[in-house]
Design a protein around this nucleic acid. Structure first.
Lengths: 298, 298
DNA sequence: TAATGATATAAGTTTATCTAATCGTAAGTC
DNA sequence: GACTTACGATTAGATAAACTTATATCATTA
């Protein structure tokens, strides 16, 4: 006798009936009639083959077996209630997490304002920022680990299953501690100076290599560092000419601590884009973050 | 927006779907079609207003929110499952408790065999024997604390709401350490001897008092004790003539350690009966115990 | 004794759930 | 690359479950 399992809905009704020990009040609290509760309880008792209540006159009480059942169902009920509260909170942005992938650089220079604004607007929603190089973020996006990723859009990459929009253009410049020339110099001229750049696997480095290759200039970096911070310091210390996104050097150039070295050849720029997984529905929180990110004029 | 609450049944379906991450398999395990699961999940997502799964191609996975929901629902599910297992066990007499009320004396001399037999037959079912005087057992029976009570049936008691059957008749006799007379003596004669009897509130004592009163014989006990064991010892020590249920003295009379003192006047006897609460359904275990009790020739 | 407060029951209706059939799509296979 | 398989979505109609209304029943209380 493989029984057609008992509907969980009956347990909900049982919970209310057992908790109040009054079918009419239980019915009221569930917005149904007393008759419905009465029938549901009867059905549960029949299906279990065990009487759960005993009715004496106008009051009902639990049988011993009913109490055993209630002890279990009560716990189950509370877990379901807390599940529903959790879902409520997620909807009202009172809890939840947005999983974001982005490189260190992008996080620091493009996401920070949005992160701050989001936290101000929805202080209970966590932002889990996964700092990985763009290709890793793309992977994680594809297998659903991330809600969204802000990455360097590379023309030859495989973005199947994803979709996104360009957020901004990342312009690169050369910088030095003091002006090199009043007029733009050629790349060839520039390559005579020691160059300070990011380590090999980075996007910025790839841009740089491609730039030299396209213009058929032989070069070699004098220094390689892991972060733009260190590069800026190195350039300030006159160790050489640096290659960084304009945005990163902007403040220091403004302050007169660094100078831009203009180049005759047009420096390639790259797109920064927001990507999401086409088949993964965006949570409300993620949508809100996206909104803020797009509005926080980058 | 006071929402018509979500059917718990949907959570059951969600549990299976999330646990297998395969709607078809989940459907199979619930003996429904894949379509039903698909629709139920969709309905749950709609009602919650939160996507729970993301479908990419032929595989589904949980969204972050889906995982949060699952974490809760999983626990609830297990509690319900254990509730159902408990109910199963109760039905198969693999667990459960029978609550029985009876006086010490009745328990010892009338229930013990049945208790042993029951325990042998259903070793996992507990017997909770509540040893109280009969009137207390009747009270507890009325308010549902007991499944059944074995009590002295007194003609003037209020057994409303209860029902029961007579189990046996409790015959009382007088006993002494050695034969008093070859022929029955009168109650008056007997009252000349020191009498050893049970304490005032007991049923046996009441019977005795009533017996003397009916026959208009003035008397006073020489000794009052709290249990029949002590009375038997006192009589054996020739401290006086005792008044006890025949059943209790039978073995000792048989062994020649005590003698019955026969009386001219007919000694009243009392009925011992099994009572249950009319409106409280008997558990299967209680039914089985009753059965055994009735068959264990008392 | 009548009124009240509670549950049970019967009949009919509504609603929710399920099935069957079909489609769409990604992933394997030859 | 075409074929096949595995899986989920969708639709429409069928079925069963759940609910409501109305009434009966019963014990308590006024």
């Amino acid at each position: 006798m493989q029984n057609p399992t008992i509907s969980f809905e009956l347990y909900k009704i049982f919970y209310h009936a057992a908790a109040t020990l009054n079918f009419s009040k239980a019915a009221e609290s569930m917005h149904v009639t007393q008759s419905a509760v009465s029938q549901a309880i009867k059905s549960l008792e029949t299906q279990l083959g065990i009487p759960l209540f005993f009715r004496q006159g106008r009051s009902v009480s639990l049988t011993h077996e009913g109490e055993i059942l209630f002890a279990h169902i009560e716990k189950a009920f509370h877990f379901i209630r807390s599940a529903e509260i959790s879902m409520q909170n997620i909807k009202s942005l009172d809890e939840g997490t947005v999983f974001i992938g982005a490189s260190d650089t992008i996080t620091r220079y493009f996401l920070m304002d949005a992160i701050k604004a989001f936290h101000l607007a929805y202080p209970r929603v966590k932002l889990s920022i996964n700092n990985r190089p763009s290709p890793r973020s793309v992977e994680k996006l594809k297998n659903g680990e991330l809600d969204l990723a802000v990455i360097n859009l590379l023309p030859d990459s495989d973005y199947e299953g994803l979709e996104g929009v360009s957020l901004t253009t990342l312009e690169h410049i050369f910088i030095s501690s003091s002006p090199v020339s009043a007029v733009p110099v050629t790349l060839k001229t520039l390559s005579q100076h020691p160059l300070v750049c990011l380590e090999r696997k980075s996007t910025t480095r790839r841009i740089l290599e491609q730039f030299f290759a396209t213009n058929e200039v032989i070069w070699e970096p004098a220094f390689e560092f892991g972060s733009f911070d260190v590069i800026l310091e190195a350039v300030k210390a006159s160790m050489g000419i640096g290659f960084v996104p304009r945005k990163i050097a902007a403040a220091l150039i403004e302050a007169g601590e660094l100078s831009e070295v203009t180049i005759k050849e047009p420096i390639p720029s790259i797109e920064i884009g927001i990507m999401v997984n086409k088949s993964k529905p965006l949570s409300l929180a993620a949508k809100k973050y996206l909104e803020i990110l797009k509005n926080t004029g980058v």
